[in-house]
Write a protein that binds this DNA or RNA. Structure first.
Length: 944
RNA sequence: GCCCGGAUGGCGGAAUUGGUAGACGCGCUGGUCUCAAACACCAGUGUCUUCACUGGCAUGCCGGUUCGACUCCGGCUCCGGGUACCA
């Protein structure tokens, strides 16, 4: 009886569903383990073979941990708000909820087919109002809190109001807007409601903020930088303009230090942690104010320019200052003589894309403004330049130029013939290039002459603070996160406006449901789509205000990352209507033990989620500072395209198209045509399927090699238009889910990017069939025996048990597959069909190939469905003990012989045995060896 | 430019702490079975040399440390990913 994967897999999927095999409850008698996949956006295209890669790995761990006695939480859900459904709605008028529902149905069908052990009763969808009620609720908490630097946590805004009323804000050490004024309690108490509320917005963790955005009127939305190409939208090619807009922002910068420090306590890859550290970009330095000297001061001309530097010790080496060409001071610093040159330069810079500015770093460009600043330390006049390497958006948009210590400044100074002043006696060759050393003693440096780096920095910072011209400062690259989208298909913001100021609706009024609208486009006046919703206004019901009073709601919706920034808690208690999750559930499951997903989320999702998690912890709602203890980024699966080659002369009316095989194509003039990889096997084209594939190829003729049509190959992105998308449904049908799971893991290390190549899947399929043949002979007789296993059989089994366990513990999924293959091959060679051995083997396999494992488990006489909660086989080292070890004998590092010695032989005996060996004697050629190295149970090296 | 990763047979990859480079699988070659094919099974398969034995060469390139290097160190090349020139 051949193994029938279709029947068996179907049977067990149904069993799991009907018996709710993987339904999970809180169970304090077992240790818990939480395995989470980054949940998908359900796109219309369905799953391709790249998507399940991480899901298979996490499912294997989930199943493995169950066997190890853990109570495993392994859920799946959908990040179901997003642009594609809305784009589709704009085109067709179909409500995004309908499209989304359909797509989710497809995803669930495809996921279930691969045999994942998800607890589907915990499924969540971010676009479900039962879910986004809590996203809105968290937003409200953020609005109601501020960050207190002394407590180093978020505190209630009502506490802040109390402090303001009693002692003003001078003693308050809180994160707030840069322009927050200092006020006394009297001043606070005298403020109007409007002024007080405006002041509080400077402290709230979420607040409306003016920010410059890529506004695309054609699409009626704001675009990310990478959605803009050459000044037009990537999608549709509409013009994009820079526009200031009131947007909600999240004060993530309040958590900058904790976001950096927390990285030390999580087991994430160094590459990923480094990326987050760089993104947050904490740098310690000093801010220094330089007084402006301009020949033509105007009322708006700034008196000072402030710079931030991480090397304040180099301040005596400053020979120029650079401000960003976009800087608001530029018009006031430009002298009439320089105006023409400056205007021209500013215009030129504006015309250059970021890419241009980036790739041309070696070419120095800039222009003198005509004005100067004064170096506060040596009173020297320092010219102010504009240069495109300084960005207006970062820090103060101004940089001090120290050519002897910074290569970019050195290039600039050399180009404009500015002085290059040495400042440290250890600087070398500064006439040739900059030397950024911190070694040596300072020279040409006024009050720090003769000092070393540490002392100099301290001295200068103290001086700055005493004179009131600067201070020590920690600066971050991280900016507060914009939290608005001019879109329909997202969470409504639970805010209404009274006198232009935002107020929260009552918690009891949540969820604020997404209203029905007629069209999914911005309004004629440029308002977001919610502006179309009739009656989209707040009716106060709580404070006794007059009937019929209405306040307009916020019209923008939340961004895609809102719903995904806390979802792992919802899985813990997905149906709870009273809380986002019960404290019982949260304190049991605590945090994610293993999180698997793509590295493209490094600075988006993973940073925002950490931020929200820390905030929820400050509120005492969750116990852990970090939400994901261990994280693995799975590598991207690239597409592998196949090509056919159409002979150019065969194209035209009345002609049959002729295709030439890959290795003969150089003899013809051909056109490369992508061919559907699903009708190609091991790069050999199925010519009949090809004729049926496209109508215009129905009469195709072929020039074959060795009777076959060989296709060309290229690695590209997996995409529909390249016909290289491999759908898991087809493979599940052909070879089964178990084979697919096995093969995806067998491809290589999980973290590594690799092209999908269906060639080779046969090997995994053969493995499944080989396992089956350990149970059934050629005549379909069940051949499992109850005999006692031999030492050889036990050795094979326990070698596998050891390796499978070790490899799973280090997430080496691919090598486990080899181990299982070796084990099955060896048992086959031993003709082993003993129950005691096979029973353990089946458990070992079950995380990878759960369907066939279930079937074999019951064939061995076990109760159906119990394998998922069986015990992982216990490794017994005594079965692996060997009497002898075969030593490789190398001579000068090259292996020349193998000699067997007893395992417990002492090095001296081994050495004597080796030197008596004839192969060794031949190589020694009568000479005495210089040295013999014996590494017990490893190797012997004879040095001559 | 900067940051991070990577490079091993025809292909995917293995080698966990410096100790027999190429496990396992694909593909290919030959054989058994079959009318034939498919399936399955057996044998071989880095490369050069050789009838064979054997030997030389080989983990992107150059150099170093070591009895011994895919593994460690220094320098480079190429490929992939990220990116906000972050002072």
């Amino acid at each position: 009886m051949e193994y029938n994967h279709k029947e068996v897999e179907q049977k067990w999927r149904q069993f799991w569903e009907e018996n709710q095999t993987f339904k999970t409850e809180i169970d304090t008698s077992k240790p818990k383990y939480y395995v989470l996949d980054m949940f998908p956006y359900p796109s219309g295209a369905g799953l391709h073979v790249g998507h399940p890669l991480g899901y298979i790995a996490s499912d294997i761990i989930a199943r493995y941990k169950r066997l190890k006695g853990f109570n495993v939480l392994h859920p799946m859900g959908f990040d179901s708000f997003g642009l594609p459904a809305e784009q589709y709605a704009i085109q067709t008028g179909q409500h995004p909820a309908i499209t989304t529902e359909e797509n989710i149905t497809t995803y669930i069908r495809q996921l279930k087919q691969i045999g994942f052990s998800y607890d589907w009763s915990r499924e969540v969808r971010t676009s479900d109002s039962k879910y986004y009620k809590w996203t809105q609720w968290i937003f409200m908490q953020l609005f109601n809190h501020y960050y207190d630097k002394d407590a180093n946590k978020a505190l209630k805004i009502t506490d802040l109001v109390e402090k303001f009323a009693t002692s003003g804000n001078k003693s308050v050490n809180a994160v707030c807007d840069e322009d927050t004024p200092v006020f006394t309690s009297e001043e606070w108490n005298a403020m109007s409601e409007f002024d007080q509320q405006s002041m509080l917005l400077k402290y709230r963790l979420t607040y409306p903020d003016e920010s410059v955005v890529n506004w695309c009127p054609g699409l009626g939305t704001v675009l990310a930088n990478d959605e803009v190409k050459d000044g037009v939208s990537e999608r549709g090619g509409f013009p994009v303009e820079q526009k200031k807009m009131k947007q909600w922002a999240m004060r993530i910068t309040a958590y900058a230090d904790r976001l950096i420090d927390g990285l030390n306590e999580v087991d994430w890859s160094d590459a990923l942690k480094e990326q987050q550290r760089n993104w947050i970009g904490r740098s310690t330095g000093a801010s220094v104010r330089f007084e402006v000297l301009t020949p033509n001061p105007q009322p708006l001309t700034p008196q000072n320019i402030e710079v931030f530097t991480t090397r304040v010790d180099t301040i005596y080496g400053v020979s120029f200052m650079v401000i960003a060409p976009e800087h608001e001071y530029v018009p006031f610093l430009t002298t009439p003589e320089q105006k023409e040159a400056v205007d021209e330069y500013v215009k030129w810079v504006a015309s250059r894309s970021e890419l241009d500015r980036m790739s041309e770093v070696k070419k120095v460009s800039g222009v003198f403004t005509g004005s100067y600043v004064v170096n506060p330390f040596n009173d020297e006049k320092v010219p102010i330049f504009l240069a495109d390497y300084v960005l207006a958006g970062y820090g103060t948009g101004a940089v001090m130029g120290v050519p002897s210590g910074d290569q970019r400044d050195w290039n600039f100074a050399t180009h404009f013939k500015l002085p290059i002043v040495p400042i440290l006696d250890a600087q070398k060759d500064i006439e040739k290039e900059a030397d950024n050393t911190k070694e040596g003693k300072y020279i040409n440096s006024g009050i720090i002459n003769g000092m070393e780096y540490k002392e100099a920095t301290k001295t200068l910072t103290t001086y700055l603070e005493e004179k009131g011209i600067g201070k020590g400062k920690i600066q971050y690259r991280l900016r507060n996160a914009v939290f608005s989208r001019q879109r329909y298909w997202g969470e409504p913001v639970p805010v209404y406006f009274k006198d232009g100021l935002p107020y929260l609706i009552e918690e009891s009024e949540l969820p604020l449901d997404l209203p029905v609208i007629d069209k999914y486009l911005p309004t004629e006046t440029g308002e977001p789509p919610l502006g179309r919703a009739e009656g989209w206004a707040y009716h106060p019901s709580h404070n006794g205000e007059g009937q019929g009073v209405r306040y307009p709601y916020e019209l923008s919706t939340m961004p895609g990352w809102a719903g995904s920034s806390w979802y792992w808690y919802r899985y813990m208690d997905a149906q709870n209507e009273a809380e986002f999750a019960s404290q019982d559930a949260i304190n049991y499951w605590k945090a994610v033990d293993l999180y698997i997903g793509g590295s493209e989320h490094a600075t988006g999702h993973l940073l925002y989620s950490r931020f929200w998690n820390k905030f929820l912890k400050d509120l005492g709602l969750v116990p852990e500072e970090e939400f994901a203890k261990k994280l693995i980024n799975q590598g991207m699966i690239q597409g592998r395209s196949n090509f056919v080659y159409r002979v150019k002369s065969s194209v035209g009316a009345g002609k049959n198209p002729v295709f030439v095989s890959y290795n003969l194509k150089d003899q013809y003039e051909t056109t490369d045509i992508h061919v559907d990889v699903n009708i190609v096997n091991n790069d050999i084209l199925d010519v009949n399927a090809f004729k049926n594939w496209r109508e215009d190829f129905a009469n195709a003729e072929f020039i074959l090699e060795d009777g076959k049509y060989v296709c060309g190959v290229e690695v590209e992105k997996m995409s529909k238009s390249k016909y290289n998308v491999v759908n898991p449904d087809i493979l599940v049908d052909k070879v089964g889910a178990d084979t697919l799971r096995l093969y995806e893991m067998f491809l290589g290390p999980l973290e590594q990017a690799k092209p999908w190549n269906t060639n080779g899947i046969d090997g995994s399929f053969r493995f499944i069939k080989k396992v089956w043949r350990l149970f059934y002979d050629d005549q379909s007789n069940f051949k499992v025996k109850d005999e006692a296993p031999t030492p050889a059989e036990l050795k094979v089994l326990h070698t596998a048990i050891k390796k499978v366990e070790e490899d799973l513990e280090r997430y080496s999924f691919n090598t486990v597959v080899s181990t299982l293959m070796i084990c099955v091959n060896d048992l086959g060679s031993l003709k082993c069909s003993k129950k005691a051995i096979l029973q353990e083997l089946v458990i070992l396999m079950s995380p990878y190939t759960p369907h066939i494992a279930e079937e074999l488990w019951t064939l061995l006489g076990n109760e159906a469905g119990t394998i998922s909660y069986a015990s992982f086989p216990k490794f017994n080292p005594s079965y692996l003990v060997e009497a002898n070890f075969e030593y490789p004998i190398s001579i000068n590092g090259k292996v020349r012989a193998n000699i067997s010695f007893p395992t417990d032989a002492v090095p001296a005996d081994i050495e004597a045995g080796v030197l008596a060996n004839e192969v060794v004697l031949k190589w020694l050629d009568g000479k005495a060896p210089k040295k013999v190295i014996v590494v017990p149970k490893r190797i012997v090296n004879v040095v001559m």
